[in-house]
């Protein structure tokens, strides 16, 4: 048999198969459903408001707050230094460098935790690391950091220490300070200029 016919006998059927089968467009998931379930039950995916407040006050450069609410809500109020990535745009190419990186600590937040949780789920499933959720969302943030409730006189000392921290942080972060006579500090205009971190996974370089 001619080699050309032999070749044809192999590549034509293979060509037919590949033409008939739909392309594999599934994103390769890095986690199985079981792993994801196990991870999402961990408390470690949450970051407490205190920790975020502490990082904000100390201007920790590794913190990257990501507001997953809509643009309108973001414009009305957002945490200092937060970037707005509405959940609907989470997978947009232009944000990939932000959510898929290994340097900063991303903290998703929404009003509650539902939307932030969704964002975390999606990014985690894509295999991205360093993504966290603000515990309790903005609502809890307001309760704890902006308007901390003064503990009862009978409370243990730690309660008071926490209250003092929250109040101090809240003041620093622009909440109206209660029980003080000093004029409220103006909240610094939140800058939404993210530091561009080199994307970890780059296409292989090539070319002649």
């Amino acid at each position: 048999m001619k080699p050309r016919i032999v070749l044809a006998a192999f590549i034509i059927p293979l060509g037919l198969i590949i033409a008939a089968i739909p392309q594999n467009t599934t994103v390769p998931y890095k986690l199985t459903a079981h792993q994801l379930l196990a991870e999402s039950n961990l408390r470690s995916k949450y970051v407490s408001p205190e920790q975020v407040a502490h990082m904000l006050v100390s201007k920790d450069p590794t913190l990257q707050l990501i507001d997953v609410r809509s643009q309108d809500e973001y414009d009305k109020y957002h945490l200092e230094g937060a970037v707005n990535i509405p959940i609907t745009d989470l997978l947009a190419e232009k944000y990939a460098y932000l959510i898929n990186q290994e340097v900063k600590m991303n903290v998703f937040y929404s009003n509650g935790t539902v939307v932030a949780n969704e964002a975390w789920m999606i990014t985690r499933q894509l295999g991205y690391n360093n993504n966290y959720i603000l515990e309790g969302g903005l609502n809890y943030w307001a309760e704890t950091i902006l308007n901390p409730i003064k503990p009862a006189n009978t409370s243990p000392n730690e309660e008071f220490a926490r209250y003092d921290f929250r109040k101090a942080a809240g003041t620093a972060l622009g909440a109206a300070p209660a029980e003080t006579l000093t004029a409220p500090e103006n909240s610094q205009p939140a800058t939404a200029i993210p530091i561009i971190v080199k994307p970890k996974k780059k296409k292989a370089a090539g070319g002649c």
């Binding site: 296409k203 292989a204 370089a205 090539g206 070319g207 002649c208």
Partner: peptide, 10 residues
């Protein structure tokens, strides 16, 4: 292996 094709002039 390397996510790229062959080459020579490069």
């Amino acid at each position: 292996v390397s996510g790229r094709g062959l080459g020579a002039s490069g």
